[in-house]
Amino acid sequence: MRNENKEVLLEVKNLKKYFKINKGFIRKDVRYVQAVDDVSFKIYKGETLGLVGESGCGKSTTGRTLIRLYEPTGGEIIFDGAEIGGMSEQELKPFRKRIQMIFQDPYASLNTRMTVGDIIGEPLDIHNLASGEARQKRIYELLERVGLSKMHASRYPHEFSGGQRQRIGIARALAVNPDFIICDEPISALDVSIQAQVVNMLEDLQNDFGLTYLFIAHDLSMVKHISDRIGVMYLGKLVELSDSKNLYEKPLHPYTQALLSAIPIPDPEVTRQKQRIILEGDVPSPINPPSGCRFRTRCIYAMDVCAEIEPEFKEVEPDHFVACHLMDQKK
């Protein structure tokens, strides 16, 4: 099915998030970190959209701005037809129930002084969903759903391993029956053998509850595994967006090509024969990004036009979006 025929759950239009930094005496020189700059995409109902990129590319900031942990600097966030980007906290409350988040660090994201039962019960209290016995029942039900047991409810987070804590975080997110979950690097703090446990569980939950995921991660193999579509970010910009099979088979943006070629494959013969594109240098500073295309300083195909005009993010093939001047040349 073509994407345009699917139902859109979340649409992001020209989202911007700048962080202000002050420099110099009496803070005269105000500058901005352009963490997310003019990013637009849609997430369809029931799908998993992966967001990948290197550290500092703005993928986590995008996730946090969507759930309004950060105030957007500009642009629109349209969730199920309602513009939530500019809503007051009070107007937002019913939407908070529908959008939840799972965090990267299973150690820092659980309150060490609360029992697991209270951690999972807190969203129920805030949204007045259940109390007394019903609350207790719901907590037990959630614990069992994520592969823990009833008796864990009275324990504290420090008594659990990393993988178990991540399950607690997932149970907390599920407590309010959300439609949409933002998973911000949910497995990168876990051991390899535990990662697969959590990923399989996320897939099962999606099937059972019809959830929609935004899956943010830097591990491209895992993102490819879990996502229907993938967006690639570089220095605050979305540079390519496509369905995941197509993106891996036929990456169009030079950055995506380099990123994919850089990943070592766990198979000695395959990985040693692989052609690598080794990028020179490091990611430039988002305070003072390069003019035109932000990737041009590391791009092997950079042309004069790349420094002058910012490439437009457009659909070059059905459902395949790229922001690169090379696309115009090919035509």
Partner: peptide
């Protein structure tokens, strides 16, 4: 064997189900 089976492969196209190793170390 468990380690090898629990990681997704970038170069394989069918969407495989990961085979996790149950339990903890």
């Amino acid at each position: 064997m468990g380690l090898i089976k629990s990681i997704p492969r970038l170069d394989l196209n069918e969407r495989q189900r990961l085979v996790p190793i149950p339990g903890t170390p």
